[in-house]
Simulated scan of single mutants.
Amino acid sequence: MSVASPEPHPEDVSRGLAALERHLADVAPVLPRPAHAEHGGETRRVRRLRAEVAEAHLLAGLQEDDTPLLVDTRRVRRRRKAAQEAARLHALGQDPVMRAWQAARVRRLLVSAALVSLALALAWSTAGVQVFAADGAAPWTPGWLFAWLVEPFMSLALLVVVGARAYLSTKGTPLSDRRLVRVERLFLGLTLGMNAWPYLPGVAGAFSLSRLVLHLLGPIVAVAVVISVPIILAGFAALDHTRAGTPGTAASYRPNAPDRYTPDSTSLVSLTARARRLINAGELPPDPGADKIRRALRCGMDTARAVRDALAGPDAD
């Protein structure tokens, strides 16, 4: 005989279901939470694209500002610095004091080189003069030793004349006395002749043109230096450092060209007296033309004509 079981109460059913849910929750595995759930549905790709768009907006706004283009780069600053330095050097080069200093420096360099060349040329010719003066004397004999002194004492006398003419040329008073010119030519001619004589055709046992030219080289260089130095120094003395001048713009005949002298010496009387001194010194012919006077006095053509007429006038003597 079976016994009927009592019907479950609804509360018992609810408690059973709740217990079942707790059991299933305890035994079920824990699944990871989706990433988009933590950031409101934004993935890493979305965030990267959002940052890229924001950066593009910022760049677009900054590109409209030209301020970075106004800032000088390092290369531009170097160029500007070099340009400013060149401009200042150019302005300094136009200063009369700087121009005088540059001219004095160049003049000193040229004179030093010329004197060194002259000394070497005379020393070169000393050996040739010694052969001529020794006249076959045995080495280390009195005649052979004294032959070495012939060229030095002639060279010293020649250097006295050259030095005096060079110094006076720097002071604007060229020394062109004909007697001094003859003395220079005499010394140089003696040096040239004594160097060349042992090697001339008919004198030398076996003539050699190369040996003759080699022994003439020293005297020829000495002649060139002696002639050139006074002319160069006279040109430096006539420089006007107050005028910059532009090469190639000066004409041969300038009616109103300013003179290169001080204001108190630009009168016709002073220029005429200077022209007479140049005529007496032999730098101008007795009856010079206007062009020669212009070049000698460094004045305008009209002034040169006036000086020419004054020299040829009744008071010329």
Rank of each mutant, 00 (worst) to 15 (best):
D135R: 06
P139T: 05
S117C: 11
R108Q: 13
L110G: 03
T126E: 08
A121D: 09
A137W: 02
V111F: 09
V129M: 04
A119Q: 08
G136Y: 06
D135E: 08
A134E: 00
V111H: 10
L109P: 06
F132G: 00
L120Y: 07
W124P: 02
L115A: 04
A137N: 01
A138S: 12
A134V: 00
A138Y: 09
A138M: 13
L120E: 08
A138V: 05
G136S: 03
V111K: 07
V116A: 14
A123S: 06
W124D: 08
L115W: 12
G136Q: 03
V111Y: 07
V131K: 01
V111M: 12
A133G: 04
S117L: 15
L120R: 02
V131E: 05
A121L: 08
A119W: 12
V116F: 15
S117Q: 15
V116Y: 06
A133L: 03
S125D: 04
L120C: 07
G136D: 04
A138R: 11
A114E: 10
P139Q: 09
A114K: 09
L110V: 13
V131A: 14
L115T: 12
A113Q: 12
G136I: 00
D135I: 02
S112A: 12
A138K: 14
A123E: 07
L120V: 08
A121K: 00
A138F: 13
A123I: 07
R108S: 09
S112N: 13
A134M: 01
D135M: 06
T126S: 13
V116T: 11
V111S: 15
S125T: 08
A119K: 01
W124Y: 14
W124T: 05
A113M: 15
P139C: 05
V116K: 02
S125Y: 03
G128I: 00
Q130R: 04
L109Y: 11
A133V: 02
L118F: 07
S112C: 13
A137M: 01
A133F: 08
A134Y: 01
R108C: 09
P139G: 14
V129R: 00
L109F: 09
T126D: 10
V116W: 11
S117M: 11
A121I: 05
